[in-house]
Simulated scan of single mutants.
Amino acid sequence: MRIKKAFKYELMPNGADIRKLRQFCGCSRFVYNRALAYNEEQRKIDTDFKFSYAKIAVLLPKWKQEFEWLKSCHSQVLQHSLKDLESAFRNFFRKQADFPKFQKKGLKESFRFPQGCKLEQHNNRIYLPKIGWIRYRNSRDVIGTIKNVTISCKCGKWFVSIQTEYDHIDPIHTGDRVGIDMGIARFATLTNGQFFEAKNSLKTQQAKLVKLQRQLSHKKKFSQNWRKVKQKLSKHHAHIANVRRDYLHKITTQLSKNHAIVCMEDLKITNMSKSAKGNAEQHGKNVKQKSGLNRSILDQSWFEFKRQLDYKLFWNGGQLITVNPKNTSRTCPCCGFISAENRKTQANFNCVECGFEENADLVGATNILRAGLAQLACEVNNTELSATGTRRGELVLTD
């Protein structure tokens, strides 16, 4: 089967390259905002007007005549900016995102080349149309055929993301089965007794973060000193995110290589991290404590952990199974008795029925593994052969 994969590297542009990259970002942002404004104007005239790339793309030549500086940007970059806006509208109507907003300078600066780029890995450089050759930090080899190239800027650094497509042979995983219980004191506990400590990248860097935020609040907005502190604050936020992301990649890579079947809870992070403030009629309880708990939950980044583990297991021939988290930490693995009294403390599990004692996270991981294997067995038993010989519910991938 054919899969798509992205390779991201840091660019090393010189002064002239940076000016061209910023110019391309500005042109792409201008076309995006111009198309969004045009959509609002048409909606006032005709309420049934629907945005589409085909309707807006014909206006690009007119805009280039009106604004000569748009001609310096690659035409396909501008076209892809309109396609991004079309995708934003599509996600809004599917109720997957908010209504598209106007892009601001300095926030999420990026543009994309759908074709025309060349890569020389042995020379550590990449060719971008109308920009030229730019060197990059080559940390790994690019596999497959290049489909598109995205340039982005974050905290003053430029990055290139190369999406490729290649044939992937389904591997056969020889690892064992494992259940994972997610937590805050322990980030992840496995059924074999192994556990990973919580990194808490935000908590460890919070003192410096508060200091920079206090300095920013004392500066006059948009002044030079304000911009300097703002840049320091952005870099510190990026450092916190990079530490968390690096830790997650190391854990998920290890788990996906060593285990063929991984079972974990299907946690609803949004519901778990809701505020406890309440409303004007009914005030919340333990608001400060719940706020700290929500911050700790979001600092673990459980959803990103699940996302990385899912696609890495797919690449290695494994499978991720998510189970209902209800009563996984309250059920005795020996007698099956369910009670909140079984877990009076956060760390210890003591069954009031049979007296079984064990670490609470290890008990939760054991119950998750059993539930996941039972769920997998039900899926296998319920599959029926169709008229074409394909099992119902089986994913068929074609080239």
Results as ranks from 00 to 15, higher is better:
residue 21 L to D: 10
residue 340 A to T: 11
residue 101 K to C: 09
residue 340 A to M: 03
residue 333 P to D: 06
residue 187 F to Y: 07
residue 297 I to L: 15
residue 176 D to N: 13
residue 70 L to S: 10
residue 11 L to Q: 05
residue 176 D to E: 15
residue 324 N to I: 09
residue 2 R to G: 02
residue 89 F to W: 04
residue 244 R to G: 02
residue 398 T to R: 12
residue 77 V to L: 06
residue 368 I to Q: 07
residue 74 H to M: 01
residue 237 H to I: 06
residue 344 K to L: 12
residue 121 Q to V: 09
residue 359 N to M: 03
residue 125 R to V: 01
residue 132 G to L: 06
residue 353 E to F: 11
residue 51 F to H: 07
residue 114 P to K: 04
residue 228 K to V: 10
residue 111 F to T: 06
residue 254 Q to W: 00
residue 75 S to C: 10
residue 61 P to W: 05
residue 326 K to R: 15
residue 54 A to I: 09
residue 286 N to L: 09
residue 169 I to F: 08
residue 122 H to W: 04
residue 240 I to Y: 08
residue 5 K to C: 04
residue 8 K to F: 00
residue 175 G to T: 05
residue 83 K to E: 11
residue 174 T to S: 14
residue 21 L to W: 06
residue 398 T to D: 00
residue 118 K to M: 11
residue 104 K to C: 01
residue 33 N to L: 00
residue 69 W to L: 11
residue 69 W to Y: 14
residue 96 Q to V: 00
residue 310 D to K: 11
residue 222 F to R: 13
residue 195 F to G: 00
residue 161 S to D: 02
residue 56 I to F: 14
residue 130 K to P: 11
residue 25 C to E: 14
residue 117 C to V: 12
residue 22 R to W: 01
residue 270 T to S: 14
residue 359 N to I: 01
residue 309 L to W: 02
residue 121 Q to N: 05
residue 311 Y to R: 07
residue 254 Q to C: 02
residue 345 T to P: 02
residue 138 N to S: 04
residue 229 V to F: 04
residue 354 C to M: 03
residue 334 C to Q: 13
residue 20 K to H: 05
residue 277 K to P: 05
residue 28 S to D: 14
residue 328 T to W: 11
residue 295 R to C: 03
residue 345 T to H: 00
residue 197 E to N: 15
residue 313 L to K: 05
residue 292 G to Q: 10
residue 6 A to L: 09
residue 100 P to N: 12
residue 67 F to Y: 15
residue 387 A to F: 02
residue 35 A to I: 07
residue 367 N to L: 13
residue 276 A to N: 14
residue 13 P to E: 02
residue 159 F to V: 10
